[in-house]
Structures are given as structure tokens and as C-alpha cells.
Amino acid sequence: MSVFALSRRTLIVAATVLAGLSGCATVSQPVSVADTIARTPSLSTLNSLVSKAGLTEALKGAGPFTVFAPSNDAFKAVPAKTLDELAANPEKLKAVLTFHVVPGKLAAADIKNSNVKSLNGAVLAVSKAGTFVTVENAAVTDADLLATNGVVHVVDTVLLPPAK
């Protein structure tokens, strides 16, 4: 076998391997907070409620926003009666959902033991111990899902704003 044939074969094998690796190494580009929620399977209930409340376009806006996003499991822990009431009252649903949103971008590393004002006007207590982050009585289970207009932190509890 000639050196040319061996080199050509080596190039073809190398090109094939690199093409295969490049398909594995694709990195998804950041998208808006709303799209990040929509793309995260464990947030499908939240995504549905954000849409029902008419908040999708707002969460695609300039921001920045920090969303403490309740997981599907968090919504399963809410009594059915409460969810039915929220579904029947768009303003109440919007108040609950905007209680989970803070203006500004707070990565987990930036969170300090303090109070932050949510988009619905109520105050949320946030705290951090080492890498463990909480908001009110909810634990952050998946932090720092980065978006073009903020960040999403998955939490294990649906937060209910104080009664006005």
C-alpha cells in the first residue's frame, strides 16, 4: 500500500471521527427565561400556567429576571382545590406566579441572606448556606439555568404570596 493511500485513509477516518464528535459537542444557545422554562421538562406545569396567565411575552422581555421556578413535583404537592381556584382566577394566578419572579439577575453565587422584592410587590426571604440556596420555605434543587434575559432556579415548593 502506498503512503498516499495510507494518508488518505487516515484523513478519512479522522474526518469521520471529528464529524461524529462535533455532533455530540453541540451546545444549546441561551434563550429567554420563558423559553428556558418551556425547554425544561421538569417545569412543564409552570410553563402551562405562565401561558395561561399571559406572562410568556413578559418573560421573553428585556429583563433581567430571576425566576424561582416550582418543579412539576412542587405543583403536585399543592392541593387540587387551590390549583383549581388559581386556574379559575387569572389575576390570582398571575399574583402567585409573579411572586416567584424577582427583577434583576441573581445567580446562586450572588444570593445573600436578605429580602428581595418580587414582581408582585411582596417580599421574599432568600438565603444561602454554602451552596444550599433557599427562597422562603423552598429549596433550590437546580440552580443557574442561564437565559439571555436572566436566570431560572428550580425550586421544590410553590410559594404563595401573603394575603393582601
Rank of each mutant, 00 (worst) to 15 (best):
K112C: 12
F99I: 09
N149F: 08
S28H: 11
V116Y: 02
S32Q: 06
A125G: 12
S32Y: 01
V17A: 15
P162T: 12
A34S: 12
A147W: 01
A87M: 10
K94S: 09
H100L: 09
P64H: 03
K112E: 14
L83F: 14
I111S: 01
K105V: 09
F65A: 02
T40D: 01
P79F: 08
L11M: 12
F132P: 01
K164Q: 11
C24H: 07
A139V: 14
S7A: 15
L106I: 11
T40P: 03
G63S: 04
V102R: 01
P70H: 07
A163T: 12
N47T: 08
P162D: 12
L55Y: 05
K164H: 04
D156C: 03
P30S: 12
L43Y: 00
L124D: 04
V123R: 04
N113G: 13
V133P: 04
S22H: 11
T98S: 08
D144T: 13
G54E: 06
N113R: 13
A125C: 05
A58L: 15
N115P: 06
R39I: 10
F68S: 01
N120E: 15
F4L: 14
A53G: 14
G130R: 04
L43P: 00
A5H: 14
I111T: 00
N120Y: 05
F65S: 01
V123D: 07
V13A: 08
D110R: 07
Q29A: 10
V123L: 13
V33M: 05
F65I: 05
P64M: 07
I37C: 02
L145N: 07
A15T: 13
D110H: 11
L124N: 08
L11P: 02
V78I: 11
T157Q: 13
S48E: 10
A122M: 09
E91G: 02
S127I: 10
S51Y: 01
A129Y: 10
K52Y: 01
A139N: 15
L119T: 01
P41I: 03
V50Q: 00
S48Y: 02
A38L: 11
T10Y: 15
